[in-house]
Design a protein around this nucleic acid. Sequence first.
DNA 1: TATTGTTATACTCTATAACTATA
DNA 2: TATAGTTATAGAGTATAACAATA
Lengths: 153, 153
Amino acid sequence: MSEIAPVPALDAHLGFWLRMVSNAVSQSFARALEGEGVTVAEWVFLRTLYGAEPAPPSRVAETLGMTRGAITKLADRLIDKGLTARRADPEDGRAQLLSLTPRARRLVPRLAALADANDGAFFASLKPSERAQLERLLKRIVASRGITEIPAT
Amino acid sequence: MSEIAPVPALDAHLGFWLRMVSNAVSQSFARALEGEGVTVAEWVFLRTLYGAEPAPPSRVAETLGMTRGAITKLADRLIDKGLTARRADPEDGRAQLLSLTPRARRLVPRLAALADANDGAFFASLKPSERAQLERLLKRIVASRGITEIPAT
DNA sequence: TATTGTTATACTCTATAACTATA
DNA sequence: TATAGTTATAGAGTATAACAATA
């Protein structure tokens, strides 16, 4: 006979609440971005290249904690959308350089405004001191666990 | 000429830090689950059915905020793995009932132990009072935004 | 040989919509 | 007609591995 051992509920873990809030924030942001025709991963990619020198896929991959193959696919999609350009690196015949198109440079500030609004709405119920406390705790975890990966999803 | 308007960095948003930590917790947990041959979504599904009456796909879908089609696919995979059973509801010819196999009932406590260990490791750098504070703030956001969806991913 | 990038393949997660069977 | 579930299709995100070109 198969016993039912007592098992903590899903919501007994802090990680559960973290994911619940994080997913809600991301999903809400994703819906807002949809109106501008981009996904969250695309936003992160665009923001990373914004105001920066053209970068090779390998560096973007490292920054975002993704494989080079994944960056190729993401870049392909953004090139199709007219938001990214890819050109050969004049100094290394193997390398490519990714950069934003003028349209992307006009778009990014609009997307940033959506990010601001989304963030503001979600954390509006916290007092400034509480928001600061939340940020402090999260950054402590990032530091203590050595988390370096920028979340693209 | 295309101007570069000042745009807040990705890490200027609380949502960024939330996602950074949440993704790290989930990825670490996913790797731990891999050793047991299940994904995070499968764990959530299994935990939801553990110790509960057999449930129709429609109810599971509602609980997890997924479509019925998605649940069918998830259940198919778990049936293949011998962790879930599907049988016709004797009281409604249209309905099916999903339940855990004995093997799944033995597995869930092991998976729960992994969840405990993962959570413990990530929040070890916080004092108990800080963990409580973090939980309180997260739950406040959940309540104020009316978040109900259990994060399956 | 090592490195850069692309391509091929595959799998998870998810959604929408068409479809079947039953109520 | 309405509901429950499945199936078909599609797309995002990701990974691994094979490959071509260049260093």
